[in-house]
């Protein structure tokens, strides 16, 4: 039984990635069960829940990195059985290759497409420009800040032409100012005209980040974890954190998490 629920008009937005009754067991411990969720076209979906509840594990099941013990994951109606560049994962710990320049790091996302080298370079440059790293193409990751490295990781993921982006606490290792700047630009970066991206699933602990970015929030709680609430955020973009409605959604999320925490 969901505490708060507003039904998304699935038909209108279309289901890009969908989990149907998914369950996962690690050793003898059942991590989560009967998880059904979806991300629609042009939407950012967030998953929140207490530490250790299985959010990151769920994200890896959705990406095909882990096989569910029950249920299935569908990408545009087709079953996901292994990792694919069509669903790109962005890690909490920012991953860049120290021996490659920013441009080479982004070009790595294009390898599987087997394009001519010059075209790869052009696309990689466009991606870097899109994430605001124009002029930093020849810099090595260790010469850049944490925020800039995360932009490289995002550019590399987008270069792979994904349909869905999975973001596992992407701002956790950034200072608040950098994270806020990146959050403000993120929607514009992700859903620009050149991008093939259709949906984003975000895992976060930060409730104001969730309200700022997402259209739908799934709340995960309990042992084994289930979805205890699904909340639709109805606010215009860009969202103002001082808005009354913003506070309202944070309260709703807090109440949901605390309610299950006591139970």
């Amino acid at each position: 039984m969901l505490l708060y629920e507003k039904i998304i008009k699935g038909g209108k937005v279309g289901r890009v990635l969908e989990a149907v009754d998914v369950g996962f067991t690690y050793g003898k411990r059942e991590i989560f069960e009967k998880i059904s969720m979806s991300v629609g076209n042009g939407r950012i979906v967030a998953i929140v829940g207490p530490s250790g509840v299985g959010k990151s594990t769920l994200l890896r099941v959705l990406g095909g990195f882990l096989r569910p013990d029950e249920g299935k994951v569908l990408l545009m109606g087709k079953k996901v059985v292994r990792p694919t560049p069509k669903i790109m994962l962005i890690h909490q710990s920012i991953v860049t290759f120290p021996w490659m320049t920013a441009l080479e790091n982004v070009m790595l996302g294009l390898k599987y497409r087997k394009l001519p080298k010059e075209l790869c370079k052009t696309i990689a440059r466009q991606m870097l420009e899109m994430v605001g790293l124009e002029g930093f193409e020849d810099f090595y990751p260790k010469e850049l800040s944490g925020g800039m490295r995360q932009r490289i990781a995002i550019a590399r993921a987008l270069a792979a032409d994904p349909l869905v982006l999975l973001m596992d606490e992407p701002f956790a290792h950034l200072d608040e100012l950098t994270a806020e700047a990146l959050r403000r630009e993120l929607y514009k970066i992700l859903f620009n005209v050149n991008s093939t991206l259709k949906g984003v699933i975000l895992v976060s602990h930060n409730l104001s980040e969730v309200v700022e970015l997402s259209d739908v929030v799934y709340v995960l709680n309990g042992r084994p974890a289930t979805i205890v609430a699904k909340i639709e955020i109805e606010m215009e973009r860009p969202r103002n954190p001082r808005d009354q409605k913003f506070y309202y959604y944070i309260d709703v999320l807090n109440d949901t998490l605390l309610y299950k925490g006591e139970g």
Partner: peptide, 22 residues
């Protein structure tokens, strides 16, 4: 690191690409 293995899987890198680039 585990994250890099995941990234290689995610990018669909083949055997020799993994050896050569990573």
């Amino acid at each position: 690191p585990k994250e890099i293995w995941e990234l290689m899987d995610n990018l669909g890198m083949n055997y020799f690409q993994r050896i050569r680039y990573v």
